[in-house]
Design a protein around this nucleic acid. Structure first.
Length: 358
DNA sequence: AAACCGTACAACCGCAGCCGG
DNA sequence: ACCGGCTGCGGTTGTACGGTT
């Protein structure tokens, strides 16, 4: 039978948008909004365009607060880190970069950043042996920018150390600071790349859209400091550009909620502006900035910490050996390999990966 | 000056998921 | 529960433009 076309293909214009079309679309949306129906919009606006095309044009180009032009080092860093952790989930990445669209970031990654990354890493560095070992290895003390993340994160870290050394980048090397929204995980069946867990868990999302609160019910006590993030401000590629979202769910199911949810989440979890956030793969515990050894009553983590109390800049972690041949990493990047598989193919889910704050 | 090539960006396409009827 | 319409997303393609030969 096949799917009905979203519009009359024969009757719609394709290709680049003219200034007149842009003006028409912009004027119409500013006056009437999208009306929640992109399909009908072009007709109402007097445009011979497909609704999808209108939507894309609006989201990627016409809507207010779109940032064009050079990406900053900070943006580079965020993109690298997030790509290393979640792969090509451009909309999620975009949600962390105010004013940037997923399309923008995707293009930027494909045309520049990827090459920058590949080009800057000398081959033969960091000879590693196996992807995602099941067994945890003795811990190492690491700086926050040297987290035992995934292979790509290693690459990223290498990238930044080299960049810093070569002064090709400026600015401090720091963890991503406080994204304003988060994706709390379900680390049971699915495996959203941020998260896999050795413990069986049953974490149900119970979004309360009326209250805008995210209410998670987990019978496995997820690390309180494990977070996954969505977006905020007007940086996302959501249909109306309102862009205040918190995301939750898994690889096959990522939902987004109003940002009020994150505010509630922040409050209910006692988070404030003093917390910082980092991506994580391995074992980790939250350490308050004023109490680096407080284990927050987490027996699992406490026992772990009894064995391996390691901390770096306020973060306690148990490292896992992540050994890759960087050439392989490069290859994966250049071959457009599935980063999710590459980075997160932890079939036994013996590892925890996530984003944490501290 | 013209042809060629590489790069960057805009736009399209198809799929998957959501949601309302 | 099912179905169809709509939206969002990510991959891919098209095109403009600048640099090089």
């Amino acid at each position: 039978m096949g799917r009905a076309p979203c519009c009359d293909k024969a009757n719609v214009k394709k290709g680049p948008w003219s200034p007149e079309e842009d003006a028409k679309l912009k004027e119409f949306i500013e006056k009437h909004g999208t009306g929640g129906n992109w399909i009908a919009l072009p007709q109402k606006a007097g445009l011979r365009r497909c609704g999808k095309s209108c939507r894309l044009r609006w989201l990627n180009y016409l809507r207010p607060n779109i940032k064009h032009g050079e990406f900053s080092d900070e943006e580079d860093r965020i993109i690298c880190t997030l790509y290393a952790s979640i792969g090509s989930r451009w909309s999620i990445i975009a949600s962390q970069l105010p004013g940037r669209t997923d399309n923008d970031i995707k293009n930027y990654w494909n045309t520049k950043l990827k090459k920058k990354l590949i080009g800057i890493i000398p081959s033969g560095q960091g000879k590693f042996s196996q992807p995602f070992p099941g067994n945890l290895q003795p811990p190492q003390t690491l700086h926050p920018h040297q987290f035992p993340l995934s292979g790509l994160s290693q690459l990223y870290n290498s990238f930044y150390s080299h960049a810093a050394t070569n002064k090709s980048l400026t600015g401090p090397i720091e963890p991503i600071s406080a994204p304003q929204s988060f994706l709390y995980c379900n680390n049971n069946n699915y495996n959203f790349p941020f998260f896999t867990s050795s413990q069986s868990s049953n974490c149900n999302y119970q979004g309360n859209q009326d209250q805008g609160l995210v209410d998670l019910q987990c019978n496995y006590p997820l690390r309180e400091n494990m977070l996954m993030f969505g977006g905020n401000e007007n940086s996302c590629s959501s249909s109306d550009g309102s862009c205040s979202q918190i995301s939750y769910g898994g690889k096959d199911h990522v939902k987004q909620e109003e940002m009020g949810g994150f505010q509630g989440f922040m409050i209910s979890n006692g988070l404030d502006g003093n917390h910082k956030f980092m991506l994580h793969c391995g074992k980790i515990n939250q350490v308050d900035e004023d109490d680096h050894h407080h284990h927050h009553g987490d027996p699992l983590m406490s026992s772990f910490l009894d064995d391996h109390d390691q901390k770096a800049n306020g973060v306690v972690l148990k490292n896992s050996e992540l050994e890759y041949d960087l050439e392989e990493v490069k290859q994966l990047i250049s071959s457009g390999g599935d980063s999710n598989n590459f980075l997160y193919n932890d079939e036994n889910k013996t590892h925890e990966k996530g984003m944490y704050y501290f």
